[in-house]
Design a protein around this nucleic acid. Structure first.
Lengths: 208, 208
DNA sequence: CATCTAATGGAACAGGAATCCCGTTAATGG
DNA sequence: CCATTAACGGGATTCCTGTTCCATTAGATG
């Protein structure tokens, strides 16, 4: 008997080219569509296989569960992060960020997608880690605009830059999740203005 | 043949006393336990029936779905809202509120429960309405401390009181959902301080 | 206390999702 | 271009969740 392979490993890692890559792309796109239409709870691997024109078995073998599939989708989303603005003004950069987040969450497709991945992250540890990685990336992209404001002397020297960036997003996500009120530009501008005021007042200094 | 009853209605409404009430209480408590242990996605009506020492059929008939059960649980939670503090100081009241929210979300049991109901609300319209109702209640309870600060002249006269209260909770929920960092008292105090600074700066005035 | 029937609970049933089996296709390396 | 085998895909199978049926229990009413 031949020595059995040390690791069966996960499919798609030894021959990642050609068909394998096409299948992954098709499945991730189908998963996105399905999440937008039915939400995470309505996610069905069989349905996704059909949409992607791929065998059911393949989806079950490579991802195995809906949460693993969403985790992979989040890893994919984390790659393509949008570049931040560079207006030279803290208020303007924060407002641009707030409006970007607001437009994303208010968009029927993107909004539904974000709700769905947040749900998935609360159902599975791997998806949660993937979600955290995604937001770490996004926050890192925008934090420099706060750091630069600190260097210009506009904010206290020990301001926690990532925390300020998160403070812009927080009220928008909170509104989406807990109220029925619309996510409009006014809400975005208010979030940016409040975050800036908090930062100037020193509420986001490290180690209180 | 007798005229059939106009509405079969939902079970538990015509004879809500005694056994029916006991069954509801037992099921809701079992649902809470199950949510804490397995999260919303792991919720199984059969398992809940066993925990509650109630027939599966009863649970399926009276609630029908996991989301409906969570909606009922939320309605129950909305009843028992905690009374707010009355320190006479805006900063102190906001801090008390922030710490209450922080302690709730950081508590293993309560935190898991809140994550679970937020997930449920994103899977079903009725659960979503129940969740909004729950937060409407909570916000209404605390909004007066902001209104009183306005009357004392500490804040702009057209300050949106509920929005200030929500601004306190928002960063705590956002942190819980998107990062792995601990929800400690420092985070609570920062949330309260930032909300107050934003309010003083006029970021929460109505109609921006 | 007696009657009526809402509500419950056990068991059998049905439908659909996840898994397994195995032949087919195509990526990789020489 | 050829050989090797990773990865795919259709179909049968298993397992589990939700439903239906009907006998039993116990609120509600006079």
């Amino acid at each position: 008997m031949a020595a059995e392979p040390a690791e069966p490993s996960t499919p798609g890692t030894l021959r990642p080219g050609g068909r394998t890559a096409r299948v992954r792309a098709a499945v991730l796109r189908a998963a996105e569509d399905a999440l937008v239409e039915h939400g995470f709870s309505g996610l069905d691997l069989g349905d996704i296989a059909q949409r992607a024109e791929v065998g059911r078995t393949t989806v079950y073998r490579r991802w195995g569960s809906t949460t693993a599939l969403v985790a992979d989708l989040l890893a994919d989303m984390a790659e393509q992060s949008l570049p931040r603005t560079h207006s030279g003004s803290l208020a303007e950069d924060l407002r641009a960020n707030a409006r970007l987040v607001q437009r994303t969450l208010a968009d029927p497709r993107q909004g539904a997608l974000f709700r769905a991945v947040i749900v998935a992250a609360n159902c599975d540890a791997d998806a949660a880690e993937a979600l955290r990685h995604f937001y770490r990336r996004r926050v890192e992209e925008w934090a420099p605009c706060v750091t630069e404001a600190v260097e210009r002397g506009e904010l206290p020297p020990d301001t926690d830059a990532p925390e300020v960036v998160r403070a812009v997003s927080a009220p928008l996500y909170y509104r989406m999740l807990t109220t029925a009120e619309p996510l409009d530009e006014a809400a975005a501008d208010r979030a940016a203005e409040a975050a800036e005021a908090g930062a100037r007042a020193g509420a986001y200094r490290r180690e209180g």
